[in-house]
Amino acid sequence: MKVLVPVKRVIDFNIKPRVKADGTGVETAGVKMSMNPFDEIAVEEAVRLKEKGIATEVVAVSVGVQQAQDTLRTAMAMGADRAILVLTDVAVEPLGVAKILKALVARESPDLVLLGKQAIDDDMNATGQMLAGLLGWAQGTFASKIEIADGKAAVTREIDGGLETLTLTLPAIVTADLRLNEPRYASLPNIMKARKKPLETIAPADLGVDVTPRLTIVSVAEPPARQQGIKVESAADLVARLRNEAKVI
């Protein structure tokens, strides 16, 4: 079974993004970038499937700028076998990414596409679902557990207020949530070995995909600062205000 794992290069989760003074976006120049944490979880799960003998090959894919190579190398250091970079300077939206991935699915014929549930930059939470829609495949989003057997995937999903389990007929799309696993470190020996794994670069046009964005960013702003509240005199006053004024209890 072949697993395709799309990964995205984003501002590192430790960095608090800074809105540009001119309001056109968030400063990315000179900012540390890393693999989207949910995608790391997806890579880890794919590699575990391979270690269990269920998957035979793990192929990492990224859509983005040249430096997204580093993200793919990290995926390979974690255990992906090879990588494909769809090189573009355009900030491709989930719809465009899904179209690119659909074209790659046609080329690679994976049985499972495993990806993060959302990227921590645009917080769209859409690519997996959209790819599933375009392919007409089953989808298991926000997965906290995956079991594969007999051409089916049993996926436990994190839903509002609990967990739901679905059985998907393969091929299928699964998006990873936080509790699916704890990703391994890309160790130094494996990073060194990953330098020698194959990395192919192609252009969106090679796949015949139009990635023109549908959304234009009008402006990006810092959220309004929180206003200081009031000091209350007693516990009774506090409870009364929470009940009658704020209406939260």
Binding site: E182, P183, R184, Y185, S187, L188, P189
Partner: peptide, 21 residues
């Protein structure tokens, strides 16, 4: 030798332990 990764607060290797190189 590079540092070990994944040693817990208690000094014991955790599940993601990766020894230094």
């Amino acid at each position: 030798v590079t540092g070990d990764m994944g040693i817990g607060r208690d000094g014991e290797p955790g599940p993601n332990y990766a020894p230094g190189m």
